[in-house]
Nucleic acid binder design. Structure first.
Lengths: 236, 236, 236, 236
DNA sequence: AATGAATGAGACTTCATTCAT
DNA sequence: TATGAATGAAGTCTCATTCAT
């Protein structure tokens, strides 16, 4: 006689299902009213998609792209195993969406958002605030970016997205360097593009260093140190 | 580099697979006579192990750690698919061995091998040649190191092995910076360790950037740019 | 060199395997309509689970626990080879489920289900009907129990389940013996527990004997023989 | 550069090798002089074979036939992985040899070794001492026999060897029963063969029960209980 | 006589993917 | 919209087995 109460042994299947009430405010920009009822299909779809992506980012930050399974993403987002596939189709496409989602979060990070004058001042300010913004309470997005950059070496779909965010970042730095040269603040023999690549590389490596070993790395000190180094090396 | 010869034509070949024609001189110091007969157990074992590791490195350079399968490693080395497991047991242990193997290949990369005077000159020379050596004919070792460093973020066994190379490399840079300070070439307020960590990271990140996107990055320009930046920012 | 794009496992996936023709009525109480369509998820799941367990019991009866493979269980039940793992996770857990399934089928075999008076009469009746019920058309369940009991010696998960069914059986026999003693039908110097263990052992060995060599063993004769022996040896 | 000190990850390979000095007096009947030197090839071969078999029995007692690997047998006996295959060829043949070896150890267990008079007294004495001898300091041989008997249900090569012990044991019991009948101690309507089969089976099943679940079974009580039951049920 | 290198079959297990509900 | 049942490919790992030393 079959046992009525048997459950599949897979422990993951025991994970919470659905949780329509208030799944989890995964996304910092969570909507004010996450209640299921009283919302249009489009709204629900959008929210589900956002939650799935946010869950995916957290998982990527933990275990990398290969370590992320569709089942896990669905359940971590408070939905069923099947939903990620339902929305994104192939895993490949989910990975692409995750990569864009991660990149978007950093897209404007080097944009000049202050009232600093263009050129050297903007550059130094952007560099400083890039490092400042890396250390919020939740390191997951930063960690996810680092991992996505790393795994772009072997995963073409990531390479594409990461190449995009890299080029935008390099472009912003390059523009500031050019302005600095035009304004006579920065040496004329500096190659704006190459210098921008090096600055971005230094920023990323500093953050990666902190992501790996936050205990022993003091971002504020490194920030000050780098800003003054940069000033010294670029000054006309 | 993709392999040319996939499998022996005759699938039911009972004879040992090791082709007498010296399948591939994986090891630069390949033995003169790789024929099967006339060698001791220990010799055969050592050679097989070396070949397996060399094959694994090539595959890691192509597809990353997760993309490397035991079957592929065995066959790429000219043996059976079972041999890697037979030697290394778990894939985990093969990965550890591969990581050490990769790390060993770069152990002396930042050692001062020139006749430059110690201190600033050595430092700048080492930095320049690190970037120069990244792009030889066979980029596989460099690629493999970059990938191993990247995947160390999510794979603890790699993290351990990579930590070794990193510490050795940081140590060498740190020593040069200290000498530069002692000789009065480098500012006294530079923290040798922190600066060494940042320099190494920047070198690596930049190379990774180039690996992913060689179109937009010219290593020679970067090298000159970085050397002069460093010189100015560190100079006493 | 960028990786060749990974391709979907099988682009032209063959149609689902579940034959609509009701592959095999594995379960004696097979459902009237095993067709795939028109059933809820829960129903399909339950039926699949029942079929898998029934198939597993048959295979265990044939080849023992070690000889049972997940692939075989899946296909013998009319499903894919992947389903057992999908439901039960590890083979270990399937084995545990099979052991419970087998034990459950025999759990009540020694319960007094007749209108015989308690004590000696019930005991003799239970013993007789235990042997009678062992010889239906399909010896697989009995054979599976014997094998599970045997392999419990080396497989802890079986030992647990078998220990359970054994203790229940011993408990029932012991209760009847106690009643017989209280009613003055059975000698006062009989140790109810030890005697119950011996009776169960004799029953099982008799059945095992028949399972192994049904041609030369006449269960009806052995039954009569043992019932009268028992009566003689226990009578007050 | 390949690491010279690498060992295969398989932990079993780290087990002691060879140990020519005085490996282990596995066999109680070990030769007086186990020294390697000064012995003929035949002697060394015999000893190696005996050691291998003794090691195999210990392993079977622990993990069963399927759980026994050739490598483990060789190393547990103090030799190399390859020796069992070298001597016995296929695993199948080693199993057969092990089965015979086990059976031989129990060949005389039911022989009347006392001065009891033939017939009923011998029968009861043999039964009692069979149970007594089951629980010596080293239960491995008993365990191994039980396991071999159990796995004979699914492993033909075992069935054959076990059939030998069984027939000898049944024969001895049958002879005692016949003598009892001739001497007028045992009822004439007892079938000597069937009764002997049932007695032997009950002895074995009971011991197996005790092996699995020693907590709930007291062999001494069982022995007394069974002896007096037998006496009453067989008495003329 | 004895060792151990190497092979290859076959098991378990995970998971992306498809499809019915 | 969302769930989850079911498939099947691909990978890891274990070992019996063969064969050179």
């Amino acid at each position: 006689m079959p046992r009525a109460d048997r459950k599949p042994a897979n422990p993951k299947r025991a994970a919470p299902r659905r949780a329509a009430a208030a799944p989890r405010p995964d996304d910092p920009r969570a909507p004010a009213d996450p209640a299921t009822s009283g919302r249009t299909h489009a709204e629900r779809r959008d929210e589900a998609e956002r939650r799935l992506l946010a869950a995916a980012v957290r998982i990527v930050a933990d275990r990398g792209i290969e370590g992320m399974t569709l089942t896990e993403v669905g359940e971590a987002a408070g939905y069923s195993r099947g939903l990620p596939a339902h929305y994104f189709g192939r895993k490949h496409d989910l990975v692409a969406a995750v990569a864009s989602y991660i990149a978007d979060g950093f897209a404007t990070r080097l944009a000049r958002t202050s009232d600093r004058p263009p050129g050297m001042a903007s550059l130094l300010y952007s560099v400083a605030s890039y490092l400042d913004r890396a250390a919020p309470d939740d390191a997951a997005p930063t960690r996810a970016l680092m991992i996505a950059l790393a795994e772009a070496l072997t995963e073409p779909v990531l390479a594409e997205a990461m190449s995009g965010v890299t080029q935008r970042s390099v472009g912003r730095l390059r523009a500031m360097i050019r302005q600095g040269i035009e304004r006579g603040e920065i040496r004329r023999d500096v190659d704006p593009h190459a210098q921008a690549v090096i600055i971005l590389g230094t920023l990323r490596t500093t953050i990666a260093h902190w992501v790996i070993d936050p205990e022993h790395v003091d971002l504020a000190t490194l920030r000050d140190c780098y800003v003054s180094s940069l000033q010294r090396s670029l000054a006309a």
